[in-house]
Write a protein that binds this DNA or RNA. Structure first.
Lengths: 230, 230
DNA sequence: ATAGATATCTAACGTATGATAGATATTCAG
DNA sequence: CTGAATATCTATCATACGTTAGATATCTAT
């Protein structure tokens, strides 16, 4: 039972060298783009290594194997989303504890959905992340639970609380969760289905005026929720 | 320049044998499930052949290669969707020509979205089809244009006309198309994201009471559109 | 009934991929 | 400075995949 001769990243107890972290980052960034664009199966480790500017075995060294890299990507996405959207979600969550009036809730809902739209559709890197999440929604791999627990569950819950708040309720019902799911999913039309959406709207790219158009659609949807007869 | 020795399906001019069509159907059904569930790259021709109960080269014989099979699947989906939903869409389209009152439009919109929800989420075969369509939305392969031209474009347009009609307008604006896209996309939460949705709603499967819940959410969204101040 | 057309099969090929072996370069504590 | 720990590399392997070759079975017009 000879020890394997493959070099492996040092255990968490040992300290790694400084430059190593940069390589990890480069590989994850390249992998996020590749997995997001082509999916887990179609993305090749060679392409990822080349895009990251490293040799192929660097992936095995840092992440064990392709699936380990995939998992690391999921964790990286969670971290990046938290950095980009946690502030607003946290603020809304705190505000909700005080049972604010419907107008405040609808304002928060509007803002969160607009932020989400930009996160989904705007810059390339964020788009790849959202693509990754959308793919893993369906492919229930090991990364699914990470993304579900740390993105979907809290994201839908805060949205559902806002939906309830828009209607003057403080307790969240399943109907609110269903509407929250639909609201978030409706924005995926401009990520997952960016090409279809642009072609239908007759736009070449998602520029400022197109974003205005979509913001307006979001506003009207939120208004439809808050102006309901109670 | 010797002729290839690979048997190839007879040209359209020649008549094939009767049993051959059944094999084609079996392969397409298996392929739809595999492509829908795993995507083009991850689905293997061997799995498909086995699921269809035929030997591997039958695929090459009938469809040329894997991509030919993929295209044939796209065409089959279009045909099946037309069979399952064209009646309602056609009826709504005809009704719209008469510039009906908003209540009629919102009724049609409600019915179409409910039908779409069932098409997306209910039975397994239809779910695979919707999965296939959703995947191709992003992967812009050769099948994209088929699905876009024959499903997305007409589907979104009729929905957009209904959205406009709900607000008492007869002319369709880009804002209506954007809302139509979002409405359809919101239902994909229960196809693409079925597992996430069920887990969030705390249901084991999409049963009748869950469907009721979602129908209610659709109704409220449609109401939010038609009850707008004009 | 039969022959030619059509359909399906077993077996094999070439290739791209993920993984691995082992050598070499780099880092940094002492 | 130095040398052990860490990181990265070149080269190779085993495998699974899409495809192809060519033999065999099945069908149907005559």
């Amino acid at each position: 039972m000879a020890e394997t001769m493959i070099p492996v990243a040092p255990a968490a107890s040992r300290q790694g060298y400084a430059k190593s972290e940069a390589t990890r980052e480069a590989i994850i960034t390249a992998a996020l783009s590749a997995f997001g664009r082509h999916g887990f199966a179609a993305a090749t480790t060679r392409q990822i290594a080349e895009a990251a500017g490293v040799a192929l075995p660097a992936i095995a060294y840092h992440f064990g194997n392709k699936e380990g890299l995939h998992l690391a990507c999921a964790r990286a996405i969670v971290a990046r989303y938290y950095a980009q959207a946690a502030d607003l979600a946290l603020e809304a969550g705190l505000a909700l504890d005080a049972a604010p009036p419907p107008e405040v809730c609808s304002d928060y809902l509007r803002h969160i959905l607009r932020r989400l739209l930009r996160l989904f559709a705007q810059d390339e890197a964020a788009g790849s992340q959202a693509d990754f999440v959308a793919r893993e929604m369906r492919d229930r791999g090991p990364a699914f639970q990470i993304l579900y627990d740390q993105l979907w569950a809290p994201g839908v819950e805060i949205t559902a609380r806002l939906v309830a708040g828009c209607q003057g309720r403080k307790t969240v019902q399943d109907a609110d969760r269903a509407e929250a799911l639909m609201l978030i999913s409706s924005l995926l039309a401009f990520n997952t289905g960016r090409d279809v959406a642009l072609q239908i709207l007759g736009r070449a790219r998602l520029d400022a005026t197109t974003l205005d158009l979509l913001d307006g659609a979001i506003d009207r949807m939120v208004e439809g929720i808050s102006k309901r007869p109670r």
